[in-house]
Computed example of a mutant assay.
Amino acid sequence: MADASADVTLRISGLKVSVGSSRVVDGVNIDIGKGEIVALVGESGSGKSLTALSAMGLLSGRVVQSGGDILLNGERIDPLDEQEMSRLRGTRISMIFQEPIASLNPLLSVGEQVAESLFVHGRAGRREAWSQAVQMLADVGIPEPEKRARQFAWELSGGMCQRVMIASALIAEPDLLIADEPTTALDVTVQAQILDLMRRLRDKTGTSILFITHDMGVVASIADRVCVMYGGRVVEQAEVHQLFQAPKHPYTKLLLTTIPKISDTPKAELYSIKGTVPDINAFPKGCRFRTRCPLADDVCLLPPELEAATGAQGGLVACWHSDMTETLQ
């Protein structure tokens, strides 16, 4: 976690999220320092998006926060009602969703949607909000921003819509930006441009970023620190370079093994982790990765605690056999 004495933008402490009687996020702790980019990684079904939606106060229906605290700049926000949370969204905390074209209103111009945060929250009048929206579109690299501002989402490419979403999320300079798979389905060139854009805007505004992804290659490109989730729990936390050089949890090591390498022979079979993430109603006893882990034995029937990793400065791991992870191929 971020140093306790440092300024912390977001603190998630002991978060539990339940769907009916099933606990799908179980005791998650994450700190994000001011201006820090923390990647939250893991396969689909690990609980990443539910963790993010909890921070935004966007859980609904049978999905509820059943425990833990969420603090933004030291103030608890999880007890706030919908009206109070709506005042925070777009101003102090913003989110980029996975599918921008599905998140943008097809009946409003993109300029109106980018300007909305400023106007609705009383930060600017309509004319000033529009002017700032056009400038923000230019800041995120959209050509001819005045023309594009008058267009609709369905007239733009996927990469352009993603830039519009980023502009909308950042126009009010929030303290925290949550980016949920923001580069999914984008080609590698546009993906690289989006990642560079987010880094530059972070440097310019000081916004903290929680970056959710399952792509370890993207993690290496943007993150300062990484939290690895599996089965609704954080299994490892470390600085990005430390995690890539010496992963301590078997799941992390196997995730990294899935990344194609330049040295791979042509047409070589891509590695994949055996098995699948367990159903939320069938998590195994003890370590939730036990049924897929090559190192698992009887001690893994007991749930491991997230503790300081041996030989890793500031790193945390929840594994009984973290000292053996380097033996995995």
Rank of each mutant, 00 (worst) to 15 (best):
3 D>K: 15
4 A>H: 11
11 R>S: 15
12 I>H: 01
14 G>D: 12
18 S>L: 02
18 S>A: 15
21 S>P: 03
22 S>L: 12
27 G>H: 07
28 V>A: 06
30 I>H: 06
30 I>W: 03
31 D>R: 05
34 K>W: 02
34 K>G: 09
38 V>G: 05
47 G>M: 05
57 G>F: 04
60 S>C: 00
61 G>T: 06
63 V>L: 14
68 G>V: 06
73 N>Q: 13
80 L>M: 14
82 E>S: 14
89 R>L: 08
100 P>F: 09
104 L>D: 08
107 L>M: 13
107 L>G: 00
112 E>N: 12
113 Q>M: 12
115 A>K: 02
119 F>C: 02
122 G>K: 13
126 R>I: 07
126 R>K: 14
129 A>E: 10
132 Q>A: 10
133 A>P: 09
143 P>V: 07
144 E>W: 01
146 E>Y: 00
147 K>D: 15
149 A>M: 03
152 F>D: 01
165 M>L: 11
167 A>G: 11
171 I>Q: 04
172 A>E: 04
174 P>I: 13
176 L>T: 13
178 I>K: 02
178 I>N: 03
179 A>C: 13
182 P>Y: 09
185 A>N: 12
189 T>F: 06
197 L>G: 15
203 D>Y: 01
210 L>M: 15
211 F>W: 14
212 I>M: 05
217 G>L: 05
224 D>V: 08
225 R>D: 09
226 V>Y: 02
233 R>F: 00
234 V>M: 05
234 V>Q: 02
237 Q>K: 12
237 Q>R: 13
252 T>Q: 03
254 L>M: 15
258 T>E: 05
261 K>M: 09
261 K>F: 00
262 I>Y: 01
267 K>R: 13
272 S>G: 11
273 I>N: 03
275 G>I: 02
277 V>I: 11
278 P>V: 10
279 D>Y: 02
281 N>G: 14
286 G>V: 05
289 F>S: 02
293 C>L: 03
294 P>L: 06
301 L>R: 15
303 P>Q: 09
305 E>Q: 15
309 A>V: 06
317 V>K: 04
318 A>W: 13
319 C>Y: 04
321 H>P: 01
